[in-house]
Design a protein around this nucleic acid. Sequence first.
DNA 1: GGAACATGCAAATAACCC
DNA 2: GGGTTATTTGCATGTTCC
Length: 301
Amino acid sequence: MPGISSPILTNAQGQVIGALPWVVNSASVATPAPAQSLQVQAVTPQLLLNAQGQVIATLASSPLPQPVAVRKPSTPESPAKSEVQPIQPTQAVPPPAVILTSPAPALKPSASAPIPITCSETPTVSQLVSKPHTPSLDEDGINLEEIREFAKNFKIRRLSLGLTQTQVGQALTATEGPAYSQSAICRFEKLDITPKSAQKLKPVLEKWLNEAELRNQEGQQNLMEFVGGEPSKKRKRRTSFTPQAIEALNAYFEKNPLPTGQEITEIAKELNYDREVVRVWFCNRRQTLKNTSKLNVFQIP
DNA sequence: GGAACATGCAAATAACCC
DNA sequence: GGGTTATTTGCATGTTCC
C-alpha cells in the first residue's frame, strides 16, 4: 500500500482494527508484509486509534481509557467475546483533537461491571478490581490495578503484533522459563486468574512481549522466527471418562468418597483405568462436592 | 467451515497432616 | 512416606464471528 501516511492497524486476520496517527518506523511500513502479519509499528507516542480516530489505547504505562477493544455495535450482547471491531479501511485518519476519548458505547462488560464472587474459591483479579471500595493492593501487597493495566496493555500490544493467544502460548512453551498455554493467556487477559497467579505470570509475559516487539522492529521475519519455535513441554493427555465409567465412579463415590489405596486399585482394575487416574478423579470429585455444597449454603432459595 | 477466543474439568503441584 | 486438600495449569471442546 504505497503512499499511505496514516497506517492502518490490522490483526492477524488482516482485519483493520484501527489506525496509528504517527508513523515512526517508515521502513517497516514501506516493506510489504506477509498476509498474516503486523502491518505497522506502534511507537512513541504510543497511541492506538480506531478508524474513527478515537484513541482506543495507549501503549505506555499510563492509565488507559477503557474498555480497550472496540466491539461491533451489532453484537453487544455477547459479553464473553472481546474481539476488536473489524473496520473497513479508510482514508488517512487525522489525529484527534482530544487525546483521551470516552469509551465507545455498547461494549462488552468491563471490569467495572459487578461480577459475583463465589464463596468457594479464591477470587480472581477481575472480581477483586470490580468490587467497589477494594484497595488496589491485595493482602499480599499485589497491585491489582497495575496488573489490570498490564493485562489490558498486553492484549493491545499482542494484537498490534498480529499475534493470537495460541501463538503466544506456543512461543512461551518453546522458550526458556515457565510454559503457558493459550488458556493461560486468555485467562490472564480476561483477569480470570488469582492475583497470585497474575503476579507470577506478569513478568514472564512482560519480558516475552518486550522481546517480541524488539524482534518485530528488526523485521517481520524475525518476529515470526521468535514466535514459531517448537513447543517442547507437554503434559499427560487428558483422560476422557465414558458415561458408563462416570456412572460407576459416582456410584462408588456415593458409597465411599474416600476409598483406601487398595480400593482405588480395585476400582481402577474393574473400570480399566490407571490407578492414578482414578485417584485423581476422587480428589477432584471431593473438591467439586465441597465447592458446590459450600455454594449452596449461600444460595438464595 | 475454520480461526480465535472462552471454559469445564482432569492433571500437576505445593503445602500440610498423620 | 503416603496420604490429603488447595490451588494452578492445560487439554479438549464449546462458542462466537467472519
